[in-house]
Simulated assay, not measured.
Amino acid sequence: MSDFSASESQLQYRRIARAIRFLREHADRQPPLREVAAEVGLSEYHFQRLFSRWAGVSPKRFLQYLTKERARAALRESRSLLDAAFEAGLSGPSRLHDLMISCEAMTPGQIKAQGAGLEIGYGWGASPFGMALIAWTPHGVCHLGFHDEQELRFEDELTREWPEAGLRRDEAQAARLAGQIFAARPQPGTLHLVLRGTNFQIKVWEALLRVGSGELISYSRLATLAGSPGASRAVGSALAVNRIGYLIPCHRVIRETGEPGQYRWGSERKLVIQGWEAAQREAAQSHSDLR
């Protein structure tokens, strides 16, 4: 993420999202690169450069990550990986994948207090998927949401969630956290999350942390991992109230059919994140194979 400044984040994400939408809408005729570039107001050269810088792959290759066939194949792959991990006794997320996060749940008393006596820092940070509103307590990150505009109404969301807390805006710290969260090479164990939810919701979120970057999982499979087989609808509800986007990766949950399903910050952004992670994963695997 360090390649993109906060001032560039919104514009480059809008162009990328618009290009991907155009490519998907006209996939049957596979429009040439110059046509896609014109759609987003760039020359063919500058669009190719922007996209490759953002994703590390060509637009055509990126589009292949977003097909239903690829999604269904990813579901099968992740099921095999998770089954193998559990058979080997690797039940903790930090042992399943090179995650950069740990987490703790708030107590019922802390939730009831609604942030009384707590200072929460917040600010806007650049990400590959637009501007992110990030908030944190002394114990860790408690909110991460993607927004298309830096409007006060999104900051009001923090006030609704933590009505008794003291809110302190700190753009410098938000930028540092964004750089850490969206780093090209995340370091394990460097971020801590504060989870606020019911016991069931927390079980779902913790189970989701076992799904690695670039992998996909179905709602029903996630319900099983959370210890509640058959609770797919309740799992969907738990994902809908997730306040820590990307780090608790609800964007990796899709329908069995390969359809992306809903996403708190827009189904189009969900697809963009899935494709970006798939590209990053493939690049990492290629780098590893060359060693």
Rank of each mutant, 00 (worst) to 15 (best):
R160K: 14
Q173W: 07
P138H: 05
D156S: 09
A165S: 04
H192F: 06
N199G: 09
G145R: 14
E155A: 13
T159S: 15
P188E: 04
A183M: 08
R168G: 02
I202N: 07
E149K: 11
I134M: 01
Q173D: 04
L144R: 08
Q180V: 14
G197A: 09
R153E: 13
Q201I: 07
E161F: 11
Q201M: 12
A174V: 02
L158W: 00
R196C: 13
Q187H: 06
Q180R: 15
N199W: 15
G179M: 02
A175T: 11
P163T: 05
A184R: 10
I134C: 00
R169D: 05
P163I: 00
P163Y: 09
F146K: 09
L167R: 01
A183Q: 09
L177K: 07
L144C: 14
P138F: 10
H147R: 13
F182D: 09
E149G: 09
A175D: 13
A165H: 03
P188L: 04
T198A: 13
R196G: 03
G189Y: 01
R168C: 12
L152D: 13
F146N: 14
E164V: 01
L191E: 08
A172W: 08
N199E: 11
N199R: 13
G166T: 15
T159W: 13
A184F: 08
Q201A: 15
T198Q: 13
E171N: 08
Q201Y: 03
E171G: 11
L144P: 10
F154W: 09
L195K: 03
G179W: 09
T190I: 02
H143R: 06
N199V: 15
P163F: 03
R185C: 09
E157V: 12
R168A: 05
L193Q: 04
K203D: 11
L193C: 03
P138Q: 05
R185W: 07
G140W: 01
I202T: 15
E151S: 14
A184M: 05
L177S: 07
I181C: 04
A175H: 10
T190R: 14
E157S: 14
L144W: 02
Q180C: 14
I202K: 06
H192A: 09
R196V: 12
D170V: 02
A172K: 11
E164P: 06
A184S: 11
R185K: 12
D170Y: 02
A175Y: 08
L195S: 07
L167D: 00
G179R: 07
D148M: 04
D148W: 03
A184L: 06
P138C: 08
A184E: 07
L191Y: 00
E155K: 13
F182G: 07
L167G: 00
R168T: 05
F146I: 08
T190W: 01
A174E: 01
R160G: 03
H192V: 03
D148P: 03
F182V: 06
E171A: 10
E161S: 13
H192R: 15
G140I: 00
W162E: 00
F200H: 12
Q180K: 15
P186R: 02
A175V: 04
H143Q: 05
R168D: 01
F200W: 15
D148T: 08
L195W: 07
K203R: 14
P186V: 02
Q180L: 15
G166F: 08
L195R: 10
G145Q: 14
L193A: 05
E155Q: 14
